[in-house]
Computed example of a mutant assay.
Amino acid sequence: MAATISDAVALAAADVLMRLMNVVLADIIILGEMSDSAIAALRDKCPDAVARYTWLPACHPAGKSRFSVCVLSRKDYVHVQFQDPILLEDGKSVTKVGLRFAVRLWDDSQWIHLIVSHWPSRLHLDRHDSGRTHIAAFLRHWIEDKIFRGSSHPNIVLVGDFNDEPFDEGLERYLRATRDHDKIKRNPKLFYNPFWRHLSSFEHRLVKHHAADPGTYFHRGGRDTWWRTFDQLIVSSAVLFGTSGWRLDEASTRVVPEAQAGFEIRSTRRIFDHLPIVGHIERQYP
């Protein structure tokens, strides 16, 4: 969103937020591309969200730019605290790799390392540019050093708009996010990316039986396909297999089906160009 936003955009964003609250029943909501003024406008248009959720803006400086994330969490249920900005500094250039948050329930459940990212657009950094793989490799090394070094089975959730698809070299080869459960059993430091299966346009007539979604971003100028799966949620082996208190519910981790009707994602006059995704992670009790 821009520095100032119109009432139409604020109302549209509030409608999406209400769907995530009341239909999806989200415990944590991550909003991207949120300036301070956009956050203020959304709070004004959605007082129910102000009453029910704690708002944690994360507009931290990054060189000449800033992060633009806001995390909402259900009051008296989920605790979220900001920990680190993840910055790739190369000479005078600074790249926003991600923001790390710590998440747990108020009943002292196991902590989750939540890393939120918005990687450069392909308009500014081409799919084949080595800079894209450099970002992914940097994040992989950062996680190895900051998280895996202190725990053999950490709960890690990566989420965001990567502007790469699951099969692109950065995510698969350098971040090491696989689609293969058996490979992760052999090497628990691999990540698992459930959005590999959201690369298909197959649509069952009943939404609840959809095996896959065609993507999250509608690219009208696409040569061979209109759909891209840029928005993803990726988890560590501990979350995939439930070894450290949390387990991924893969069937419920997908593009938000309830939101699609209100987005007009294919319209040339669309306000939003990405569909939201939902990740469902269940508490595992001893």
Rank of each mutant, 00 (worst) to 15 (best):
D15L: 09
D15H: 14
R19S: 15
L25R: 14
A26G: 06
E33P: 02
S37C: 00
A38N: 00
R43E: 12
C46K: 01
A49Q: 06
A49W: 04
A51D: 12
S68V: 01
C70M: 05
S73A: 14
K75N: 12
Q81P: 00
P85S: 15
I86E: 10
I86W: 11
K96W: 03
G98I: 03
A102K: 15
H113S: 15
R127P: 00
I135P: 03
I135K: 05
F138Y: 13
H141S: 09
W142E: 07
G150H: 10
P154F: 01
L158E: 07
V159C: 10
N163L: 04
A177F: 00
P188E: 12
F191C: 09
W196S: 10
F202P: 00
E203Q: 13
E203F: 03
H204N: 14
T216Q: 08
H219C: 06
H219K: 09
G222P: 03
W226F: 09
W227H: 03
I234C: 05
V235A: 11
A238F: 11
L240W: 12
G242K: 08
E250D: 10
F263A: 11
R269D: 14
I271K: 11
F272R: 06
I277L: 04
V278G: 00
E282D: 11
R283F: 10
Y285S: 08
